[in-house]
Design a protein around this nucleic acid. Sequence first.
DNA 1: GTGGTCTAGACCACG
DNA 2: GTGGTCTAGACCACC
Lengths: 134, 134, 134, 134
Amino acid sequence: MLFDIQPDSPVPIYEQIVARILFAVASGALEPGTRVPSVRELAGHLVVNPNTVARAYQDLERQGVLVSRRGLGMEVSADAPRTCRTQRQDIVRGRIREALREAVSSALAPEEIRRLVDEELERVNGRGGRHREK
Amino acid sequence: MLFDIQPDSPVPIYEQIVARILFAVASGALEPGTRVPSVRELAGHLVVNPNTVARAYQDLERQGVLVSRRGLGMEVSADAPRTCRTQRQDIVRGRIREALREAVSSALAPEEIRRLVDEELERVNGRGGRHREK
Amino acid sequence: MLFDIQPDSPVPIYEQIVARILFAVASGALEPGTRVPSVRELAGHLVVNPNTVARAYQDLERQGVLVSRRGLGMEVSADAPRTCRTQRQDIVRGRIREALREAVSSALAPEEIRRLVDEELERVNGRGGRHREK
Amino acid sequence: MLFDIQPDSPVPIYEQIVARILFAVASGALEPGTRVPSVRELAGHLVVNPNTVARAYQDLERQGVLVSRRGLGMEVSADAPRTCRTQRQDIVRGRIREALREAVSSALAPEEIRRLVDEELERVNGRGGRHREK
DNA sequence: GTGGTCTAGACCACG
DNA sequence: GTGGTCTAGACCACC
């Protein structure tokens, strides 16, 4: 459960935290019943203000991903994995869709867009070529 | 030179305007020497605050895409097409890269990412699909 | 749209603000499209920290009651009345249910509970006796 | 003297314990001179932190409901029943008053409030309903 | 120890 | 002018 954030990113720190935990739950790295680091602990680790972490945790609680155990901290809720998996896919798909929509609106040729996508896919995904899945 | 903007999009209105003009130049729809609408005119057409259009024009002027002809408004600069074409590709590639980077950081399986990308590619642009060349 | 809050209540200030606005929308006092006071303005009026008002507004935005018009402030959303009316009833009913559940768990006689409820109903509701609705 | 508490309720666990014991005394289920379970015993039974039970007992001792018999634990005081009966009514009435006050402040129509109250009264305690005396 | 709320004051992006 | 984010530091209730 250790990760770090990019303080200079345009995306707010608390959203970065939300996404990290959401993804961790979706991937199974964080299981239901697991306690997340305390607000102060995580804030110390990330070198951010505790309020920022608290806000992220509150968001996750409102989404039903975390539940607060009074006086004991917060833990991953029972049905968080289901929620998070669908959310994760929605988020990722949404970003991809946005990027492609902009590509189309730029009047780039479809083949050109496809080329850019493929280049970036291979770049980000090592040898993950289309027909050579391990 | 007619387009519209989405006031409820997360991307700032002035950036939407910048991108639209930049793309129009890159695609050849706006040629060097062409005068762009006045700030007031475009603001009226888009139903946005004139300050917003002004800021977009400022940005474009700083980038060298527009040049102001004193007393006459602004027009597309001579070497705008070259600038805009490379910019366009950079912008589009950047957005795609970001989206894919997030996909990877979400711990989605590479095949799953590939699947999402393909779905969205076909969705946004049927003819460009790999498996359905018209 | 003027109201005040009770700083010494056990219920958090930002929740009081949320409830006030939610109730105002439910009752029709605040109609869709109406702009709510700016964060700073309301904070000044209530003599609380702007952050506190901002938090209330964010909650309302997340609930879909308010929508943010960039640079212009926040206004009541189109379908807020529907949302708020059902929410209002849920909230009020929930509180009543809780109170009565506790009454039952106290092993007070049912007639006694009924008596208490009637006393308080008339107290809070003037001459609003059961069979004498004006 | 067996009861259980709801760890996820908004009302603090120690208050739940206090109320339960207070109600038990008021209803005659716990008589003066009766020994209450030890802190550890009750904590074990309720699966809560012993500190929480201790705090509840402290509160009850301060109210004069329990008295500590040194070395023997705590027992119900001689005049606890009288105290508890009036307290019980005050507590219950207070909660009802609060709920109704909120209902009024929500600008719900008086008839509507009356309807909600009646529905919940019958729900929680069928025989006590005004229109359906068994 | 835990989270929850509030204040004060700062900086930023947007219109 | 608007809201959004972040920091710093305080106090509280609960376990």
